[in-house]
Simulated scan of single mutants.
Amino acid sequence: MFPDKFDYYAPKSIEEAAKFLSGHEDAKVLAGGQSLIPLLKLRFTSVPEIVDIGRIKGLDGIAFQGNYLEIGSMVCTSEIAEDSSIRKKFPALSEAAGQIADPLVRNRGTIGGDICHGDPANDFPAVMMALDAEFEISSATKKRTVKAEDFFVDTFSTALEQGEILTKIKIPDTGSSGRYMKYKKYAGDFSILGIAVNISMDGKKVRKAGIGLTNCGPTALKAREAEEYLAGKELSDDNLAKASELLLKVTDFMDDDNGSVKFKEKLLKYLFIRAVKGIGGVPK
């Protein structure tokens, strides 16, 4: 099936793209196209104009700047999965990237497109919350920064305003380690649910914990109560069991074809404990 007709625009700068978007309310940004193109081809949606930002230079870099990892919004998922520095310093991010869809999608899909799509079943948003990431957002005249936990407003809805484009992801390097675990029915499928855990230690006690949840509500969720509970505590079985119960305070599960609410709650707690115990060698 072919999509409805649309006008195609390929700007060469962020300013040019943002200016066009500010004057065309229904235009959509095309990054890797792995979410938008299928929707168009199946005619689940139609748009009058598409703004392809793939020709804009400077959006496809990975670099460590000071105490931050900076990732351009057009960096492909496969690059993140395969980058040795990311795998070493941010294993949860690398692990999540390697589980997204299949190699074809990972080679074309971008981290910015995944984040801006706002799908609660996408994997990167929960990781961004666990890592306390910040998003650099650009318009034709200015830039602003939004925390990951404030970016996801509702299902398929983000804090991006008309004329704005996500240009960079900034992740603080805190000497932590983590895991990303998801449960799915089939290879390459979306998560039935998933969890990102990021932990930094002070001796045998947790200095700071970050926890993000995938497909546990209308958006990716940050489990702040569980994070705060773990701070200053050892990762004992009792403490992990208590923290796993606190995860459920932010979830909004529904019975559906993927399972009952009770099944999902039990699964989430299991994945959380498995993720924490699977981190291993957490840096001090």
Rank of each mutant, 00 (worst) to 15 (best):
residue 23 G to Q: 08
residue 156 F to N: 10
residue 87 R to K: 14
residue 150 D to K: 05
residue 247 L to S: 10
residue 160 L to D: 00
residue 246 L to E: 10
residue 25 E to S: 12
residue 35 S to E: 10
residue 208 K to Y: 12
residue 140 A to P: 02
residue 223 A to M: 02
residue 185 K to F: 12
residue 193 L to R: 00
residue 155 T to N: 10
residue 36 L to H: 05
residue 252 D to S: 06
residue 50 I to M: 10
residue 182 K to L: 03
residue 86 I to Q: 01
residue 121 A to E: 08
residue 144 R to K: 15
residue 13 S to N: 13
residue 277 K to S: 12
residue 37 I to E: 05
residue 32 G to P: 14
residue 39 L to G: 08
residue 69 L to I: 00
residue 43 R to K: 15
residue 140 A to S: 06
residue 268 L to A: 01
residue 33 G to Q: 04
residue 47 V to A: 10
residue 234 E to W: 08
residue 162 Q to K: 13
residue 257 D to I: 12
residue 32 G to S: 13
residue 237 D to S: 13
residue 193 L to C: 04
residue 160 L to W: 06
residue 8 Y to W: 04
residue 45 T to G: 13
residue 74 M to R: 00
residue 276 V to N: 02
residue 208 K to A: 13
residue 251 T to D: 03
residue 198 N to H: 04
residue 81 A to L: 11
residue 222 K to T: 11
residue 103 P to V: 06
residue 195 I to L: 02
residue 172 P to R: 06
residue 143 K to C: 13
residue 269 K to T: 04
residue 61 G to T: 02
residue 84 S to I: 11
residue 147 K to L: 08
residue 6 F to P: 02
residue 232 G to T: 03
residue 225 E to P: 05
residue 243 A to E: 09
residue 181 M to N: 06
residue 4 D to H: 15
residue 164 E to H: 00
residue 284 K to R: 15
residue 213 L to M: 00
residue 22 S to Q: 06
